[in-house]
């Protein structure tokens, strides 16, 4: 929808032709745009500077402005909630590390607090160190609480602590203690300390909450691995951002390959999602040669010197 990078102008369709996500930008027409044939509105380069920050647009991985309090609603009989929370948290940490300092990411060896209440442990299991990404394995501190109230306490204490990179919580259901007030408390504490909270709500209704971003996560068919097309591949999730302060809601297939979060539109059909009978057929692997053969472009000294 956006004009390509090198073009100095941005074309916007008329509102009747706009998809809902860009409808918010319809207000741009007050910027005395030049009406062109074909229903497009031409906005000069000067006008684009006065646009609000692109955070008003769609969410995408690696966003600089990461929320400090997010909720992810997921089923307890799959790990998608925790996995998506972890993937988003890593994405946020990576972005924070890049924006702060080139050395910061390497130095950020702060712990990660993972709080679960007892029912969440019983239904969804507890984290397994070898299943975590390698850089998080020895940085995990796990808290298991008997009641949701204690879990909220542990989350809040974790957010108050400056030595946690982020806090991940898993709470089962809609406990009475976890109302809007509790959620607001968590939001304020997270804002105060700047520690991000990713709260996984297992089998919960999306009731009142002050979370900045609220996701609904389900497992999605994984992308096929390179060498064994019958095996499950890199994890993918159907993620629906159904409420956010600064972003338009939307649906994505998020996948986590090589530790990088990537988003695809949800309607993209995947060959791997088909039946097992059709495995290994009509697969074009030419463009995806993986890590066996790496192109030398940009890696040679000459390329570095040129750059």
């Amino acid at each position: 929808m956006w004009g390509s990078g090198e073009s100095p102008t941005v074309f916007l369709m008329k509102s009747s032709a706009l998809p809902s996500s860009v409808k918010t930008l319809n207000a741009l027409s007050i910027l005395s745009p030049v009406q062109e044939e074909g229903g497009a509105v031409r906005v000069s380069a000067n006008d684009t500077f006065t646009l609000p920050k692109p955070q008003d647009g769609r969410w995408h991985p690696g966003l600089a402005d990461q929320p400090l309090h997010s909720e992810i609603f997921a089923s307890a009989s799959e790990a998608s909630g925790a996995a998506l929370a972890l993937a988003l948290a890593r994405d946020a940490l990576r972005v924070a590390g890049q924006s702060a300092d080139s050395l910061a990411e390497a130095n950020d060896r702060r712990q990660i607090l993972w709080v679960q209440d007892k029912r969440a442990v019983a239904r969804g299991g507890r984290p397994c160190a070898y299943g975590l990404p390698r850089d998080l394995r020895d940085r995990l501190i796990h808290v298991e609480t008997a009641t949701p109230e204690d879990a909220l306490f542990a989350l809040e204490e974790g957010l108050k602590c400056r030595d946690f990179a982020c806090v991940i919580g898993e709470i089962m259901g809609n406990p009475r203690a976890f109302g809007f007030t509790a959620s607001r408390r968590l939001s304020l504490t997270a804002q105060k300390q700047g520690t991000a909270l990713w709260l996984v709500r297992l089998e919960a209704e999306a009731d009142l909450s002050s979370a900045r971003m609220r996701w609904r996560a389900k497992s999605a068919p994984s992308s096929p691995p390179l060498w064994n097309s019958d095996a499950p591949g890199a994890p993918a999730w159907k993620a629906e951002l159904f409420r956010a302060r600064s972003h338009a809601p939307g649906k994505w297939i998020l996948s986590n390959e090589d530790g990088r979060l990537s988003a695809n539109p949800p309607d993209q059909t995947r060959p791997a999602a088909s039946t097992p009978r059709s495995r290994g057929q009509s697969r074009s692997r030419a463009q995806n040669i993986g890590y066996l053969v790496r192109p030398t472009v940009g890696r040679s000294l000459a390329a570095v010197a040129r750059a």
Partner: peptide, 29 residues
């Protein structure tokens, strides 16, 4: 602590005092 946040040890102390010593743990291989 309000301004700078609690330290890790202080936070773990608070957690384990309320939740019991076995509640706060770390997985090791």
């Amino acid at each position: 602590t309000e301004r700078h946040g609690t330290s890790l040890a202080a936070c773990l102390d608070r957690l384990s005092v309320r939740l019991g010593p076995g509640a706060v743990r770390r997985p090791v291989p």
